[in-house]
């Protein structure tokens, strides 16, 4: 059991690391698409654009189940701030799923503000963990400032959350440039 928990957390942390790299790549792609019209760039851009909702669904699903894994199986008590982030993450898989089934490309409009607010909470939470003296949040049995896990030197639970929100935001920033 203990082994399964630590292995899954390492797997989640690895996914987070990959998602961070992917987010950086996507941001670069967005900038490149803006400055050049190179056919390869265009092709990759189009590919991401076509599949953004599919990728978002996977990211949101993994994030949702990951957080449920941490609380229900690994038994990390979610603190108040974790709950705020959960509120903004849990609707996303449903939104993306419905959008995919009904071919609704407008889902980006609704998802972006939700994910941005979630990212805001996650960043606040990261700040809280980094500078526990600067801000106060300790009205839970398990204080928000308690760091449960740090993989690769920086990945804690709120960093995971922030990475997922970030990835979803970047994916949903892709727009058809002709319109």
């Amino acid at each position: 059991m203990q082994e399964l928990v630590s292995q899954t957390i390492t797997a989640l942390a690895t996914l987070v690391l990959l998602s961070n790299i992917a987010s950086i790549f996507l941001v670069l792609l967005l900038i490149l698409r803006f400055v050049t019209k190179h056919p390869i760039i265009r092709k990759i851009h189009q590919f991401i654009l076509d599949n953004a909702t599919s990728f978002s669904l996977i990211v949101a699903t993994v994030a949702t189940l990951g957080s449920l894994f941490l609380s229900e199986i690994a038994k990390f008590d979610p603190c108040k701030l974790c709950w705020e982030q959960r509120i903004f993450m849990y609707p996303l898989p449903i939104l993306f799923l419905v959008a995919l089934i009904t071919n609704d490309t407008k889902v980006k409009k609704y998802v972006l503000p939700i994910a941005t607010i979630g990212l805001g909470f996650a960043i606040y939470h990261i700040l809280l963990q980094t500078f526990p003296q600067a801000l106060q949040c300790s009205d839970e049995l398990i204080s928000c400032t308690r760091k449960y896990t740090a993989h690769f030197g920086y990945i804690t639970v709120p960093v995971m959350s922030a990475s997922a929100f970030m990835f979803i935001i970047v994916l949903n920033l892709f727009r058809n440039p002709t319109k």
Binding site: D50, N51, T53, I58, L68, E72, P93, I101, N103
Partner: peptide, 28 residues
Amino acid sequence: KAAKKSGTTKWAAIIIAGALFLGFFIYI
């Protein structure tokens, strides 16, 4: 046209997400 283009990935994504949810809750 857009739907056709992304059809395969779309269904793959839906199936993967569905399987993940199902697997997780069965495990719980």
